[in-house]
Design a protein around this nucleic acid. Structure first.
Length: 990
DNA sequence: ACGGCCACTTA
DNA sequence: GTAAGTGGCCGTC
């Protein structure tokens, strides 16, 4: 039942019985935009997230009023908007709000829609040229209060707090917070009547109100409480004891006066609509329903229809134009059109000449506006007081987002100590908070004492932690996994967040690197200060804590500034390129998952590795003496050049392949061919090299990665380093631990579980071939997987007509090589090499294969066609892999990119599936009350550490998550199969 | 000290 | 034939 709304005739005067509600539309729009997940209208991708938030808020307000109590229903109601950026304040102070970036591109079309929404709900929609919404609110509030009516301002904007009084209240419906004198006092340290005095001293970084340097909210309140008001303070400034404060108050007195004008809301705007005309009117049900229907807000449409009695079926969705939004289905593809215009996209991802002729992409437009504000690394603030740090956090809360970066003593996050951190809330405005800088000069004299003017670490963390963990502030970082790992060691659990590296990777994988310096150059035409310019490089490199604080500020704050700008440029591309789901399901949630895996690490048996190194050395020594004897001299076996001279020069053996540089190749393949001809030396070289590799890369190197504190090895996973969506692992790479040879498996045996635990390895069986069967839709392959057959034997049987039972292993081996070849984008050349057959024979095999499985050929041709036309290919979950140079004229390169493009959807889809499993795994284990810990990922395998007693219970859960990882987004036409085993070491579990 | 090349390891 | 990372050698700076 709709609340009684009097349609009283507009009267110029209000009475004590009246209640005026003034909704601050502008700040609400921004809050709704940032607080709510992005939402787009179904048919055309029109962004409507903020509109939805606004409508829900307005409806709730109209339905329920401000509080559950009766009697405060409004008699007058209006939503007030800002009209334009330029106001009388810019005449007083041109820099006012100058640092404010352009609104996000996907918010722009929503401004008009929200005004439409207001009118659709039959609510007065007020705006006036030359005045901010705040001034209109101030004027209406004063007029209504003077006439004795009650006024409630709906806003979270602190600038409106100066209006609070006996008749004027303020409420923040989004945070469900009522602002009274107490809250004002908490915020400003003074009552509402003195708020402007305090603001004019403290200034406002968000609106770029200058204030007086060195005076923050705390000091300002102190001074105003002592002197009463700004003018009294300024006239008696010479009596202030603190030298710097006194000087600043005298020097910047006029700046304070200008600030006061800026923050004082104008209460005498010649309003075009008199306050008496703002009376509440009955809602026009069909009108509201028509609008909501057009927006596609099904739930709210239904609710409003029920309440107003409008008949949904009989109401047409209203029609209106959205400036800046083209014909449906056009806009969403603009970004791709830039790419598809042949030759338009250059390798660095920027549109070429033709790109200028099509509508600019959202990101391009945003890049232009972000670039317009200069990057000046000398203009950043060094935060040295807790008060200033609090103000920066306040700014982050105000904005709802903040760019964030840590500076540490090491590139290795697991052993990096925090040195400082930087924040940025708007382009051009960033700060650095030094925390642990030491004297860099005196290290020879045993110096290294903590430098002065740094906030004690714990004090800073106490201020930062609530903000970094608050759900209403989006933390923006470049490669957040690093900062997450650092901060977690200081007890801070960062969230929610965006990662600019992952944003770039999501939309541009394959177009180039995703490092900050490269992205900055690509999108902002700006080269940030290189790290080596601050810390040096190589042997003379210093740790960041030894860097002078002013230099550190320039470098670190610039990183935060650049990160924020990159976010502003890249985030809209999720919408324009329709990649939001990929980012939100396959990229962003991987950050905490991988961070926890890295943090856990895995245990390796140091003594076992040490023994192995000894064994390998012995084996190598035995080979060495025989090699020298056969060669007739000693030489460096590890030098391909010297080895080539011996083999192909001195000994006169026939050379096989040549390397890229023209030298005779000494690859294992060549040496094995020579061995097959009866030569003794080459096979010994091969054996020596294998031992040498095992020793240097694994048994010698791995112990050096054991973290002294945790006694475990912590690899680092790169989320954004492959074109296909696979992860990579480094320092150490735990994705290439030997498994093929007996000697190699000894290394794997050194990866062990803790006492009382087992290692569980769970791997997908033939996941890439299964994905291929699904994508290319091959009936025989799908049937074979459904029936659980030996896929390679089935392939051989299909190709050569031999029965599966009693099949020659060599025939199966050939079919297996062909299956793998298909995944790799097969060529006769490659297959011939792999199988040691002629190019002609290999070509015949491929021909036969294509005849038996014509769908494979179709898939390959379609993929090649697509990559040439679009410059990218996609996985089954929509991840893109770009090949910007696929149209090169060099036939070899062209074929190479084509093979890569054929492989990418297969490899990438498998990678997506495992990512989905990983994102869900921890929750599923937790809710099953299992203590299994996910430790490693190796492309088709996950390794867990599981308490002995829980192994049997855990394995089915792991298998279930992995085998059903595609649900509910997608149903594969083949089953996924996971094999899992438990053992005390990785080799036995595998 | 750095980077390219070659070799070897994995999925 | 796809996708990665690391270590030793060796020429260049």
């Amino acid at each position: 039942m709709i609340r009684a709304m009097s349609t009283q005739s507009s009267s110029p005067a209000l009475t004590a019985d009246d209640h005026l509600i003034l909704v601050d539309g502008s700040t609400f729009i921004f809050r709704a935009y940032h607080a709510l997940p992005p939402l787009t209208r179904k048919p055309d991708g029109l962004p409507v997230g903020a509109v939805s938030g606004f409508c829900n808020m307005l409806w709730k307000l109209l339905q329920e009023g401000l509080t559950p109590e009766e009697g405060d229903e409004p008699t007058h109601f209006a939503v007030i908007f800002d009209h334009s950026a330029q106001t009388f304040r810019n005449e007083i102070y041109p820099e006012y709000k100058a640092h404010r970036p352009e609104p996000p591109e996907d918010l722009v079309p929503q401004f008009g829609l929200i005004r439409e929404a207001t009118r659709a709900f039959s609510v007065h929609c007020i705006e006036q040229a030359g005045f901010e919404a705040d001034d209109l609110i101030a004027t209406y509030a004063r007029q209504a209060a003077e006439q004795g009516a009650q006024v409630t301002i709906v806003s979270g904007d602190k600038d409106l707090m100066q209006l609070i009084g006996p008749k004027v209240g303020m409420i923040d419906t989004m945070k469900n917070k009522i602002f009274g004198e107490t809250e004002v006092f908490e915020k400003f340290g003074v009552g509402p009547d003195k708020v402007i005095e305090v603001q004019s001293l403290a200034g406002d970084s968000v609106d770029n109100v200058p204030g007086v340097p060195g005076i923050g909210l705390k000091t300002a309140a102190l001074l105003i409480n002592e002197f009463g008001d700004l003018e009294t303070l300024l006239s008696q400034a010479d009596t202030i004891k603190q030298k710097k404060r006194r000087e600043n108050l005298i020097e910047f007195a006029d700046q304070a006066r200008v600030s006061k004008e800026l923050v004082t809301l104008k209460q005498d705007v010649p309003v075009e609509t008199p306050v008496g005309n703002l009376s509440v009117t009955d809602m026009d049900g069909p009108k509201a329903v028509g609008f909501l229907k057009a927006m596609g807000f099904n739930t709210l449409t239904k609710r409003v229809a029920e309440t107003t009695g409008a008949d949904i079926a009989n109401v047409e969705a209203s029609e209106f134009e959205v400036p800046g939004w083209d014909v449906p289905d056009h806009k969403g593809r603009m970004a791709e059109r830039v790419e598809t215009s042949s030759g338009a996209a250059t390798s660095d991802g920027t549109p070429g000449v033709e790109g200028m002729m099509v509508p600019q992409t959202v990101a391009d437009a945003r890049a232009e506006s972000v670039k317009a504000i200069a990057i000046d690394s000398s203009a950043y603030e060094t935060v040295t007081s807790v008060d200033r740090l609090k103000e920066w956090c306040e700014a982050a809360f105000e904005k709802g987002y903040v760019a964030f970066d840590t500076e540490t003593t090491s590139l290795n996050a697991m052993q990096a100590d925090l040195v400082g951190l930087s924040l940025s809330t708007e382009p051009g405005k960033a700060c650095y908070v030094p925390l642990a800088h030491v004297d860099g000069e005196g290290d020879l004299l045993g110096g290294g004492g903590l430098l002065p003017d740094q906030i004690p670490l714990q004090d800073a963390l106490d201020v930062l932690k609530p903000m970094l963990e608050d759900a209403s502030v989006l933390k923006i970082a470049q490669n957040l996994k690093y900062d997450w790992l650092v901060m977690t060691r200081y007890g801070v659990d960062i969230g929610p967040f965006d990662d600019t590296m992952l944003l770039s990777y999501t939309v541009d994988a394959g177009k180039g690197g995703n490092g900050m310096d490269e992205l900055s150059d690509r999108w902002l035409d700006h080269k940030p200060i290189p790290f080596k310019e601050v810390c040096g490089s190589g042997k003379s490199m210093i740790t960041f804590d030894k860097v002078a604080i002013d230099k550190a500020t320039a470098y670190a704050a610039e990183d935060a500034d650049v990160t924020l700008r990159l976010w502003m440029v890249l985030k809209p591309r999720l919408v324009s390129d329709r990649m939001a789901t990929v980012y939100e399901t396959l990229e962003r949630p991987m950050v905490p998952v991988l961070a926890r895996m890295e943090k856990r690490g895995i245990s390796v048996d140091r003594q076992m590795l040490s023994r192995l190194s000894g064994d390998f050395a012995q084996g190598m020594a035995a080979q060495e003496s025989e090699i020298y004897e056969l060669a007739g001299e000693t030489f460096n076996i590890g030098s391909p050049k010297q080895l080539g001279d011996i083999l192909f020069g001195k000994m006169g053996l026939p050379g096989g392949k040549k390397t890229k540089t023209g030298a005779w190749s000494t690859s294992a393949q060549v040496l094995e061919d020579l061995a097959a001809e009866g030569h003794e030396l080459p096979s010994k070289i091969v054996a020596w090299r294998q031992l040498s590799k095992l020793k240097s890369t694994y048994s010698d190197a791995l112990p050096g990665y054991i973290n002294p504190e945790t006694k475990r090895v912590h690899t680092s996973y790169a989320l954004a380093s492959t074109t296909t969506g696979r992860l990579s692992s480094s320092e150490p790479n735990l994705q290439n631990i030997p498994v093929r040879t007996e000697a190699g498996r000894k290394i794997r045996q050194a990866f062990v579980s803790e006492a009382g635990h087992k290692l569980v390895s769970a791997d997908y069986s033939q996941i890439e071939l299964r994905v291929l069967a699904h994508i290319a839709d091959i009936p025989q392959l799908k049937k074979a997987f459904e029936d659980g057959l030996d896929i390679h034997a089935m392939t051989a049987s299909e190709m050569f007509g031999t029965p599966i039972e009693g099949m020659d292993p060599m025939v199966r081996r050939q079919a297996k090589a062909i299956n793998f070849g298909i995944i790799y984008g097969i060529s006769a050349f490659g297959l011939a090499n792999q199988l040691g057959i002629s190019r002609g024979e290999a070509g015949d095999y491929i021909k036969t294969y294509f005849e038996r499985f014509p769908g494979i050929k179709d898939y390959m041709e379609a993929t090649k066609k697509k990559v040439h036309a679009d410059g990218f290919v996609s996985t089954i979950f929509g991840r893109k892999a770009h090949y910007p140079e696929v149209n090169t004229k060099n036939p070899n390169m062209r074929a190479f990119y084509e093979r890569a493009a054929i492989n990418a959807p297969i490899q990438g889809s498998a990678a997506d599936i495992l990512r989905r499993a990983m994102v869900r795994m921890e929750d599923r284990l937790n809710s099953a009350k299992l203590d299994a810990q996910m430790l490693l990922q190796v492309h088709d395998e996950l390794i867990f550490e599981v308490p002995d007693a829980q192994v049997d219970e855990t394995i089915p859960v792991i298998k279930d998550v992995m085998e059903n990882a595609c649900d509910p987004a997608l149903t594969l036409s083949i089953p996924l199969q996971v094999d899992a085993r438990a053992a005390d070491n990785w080799d036995d579990a595998h």
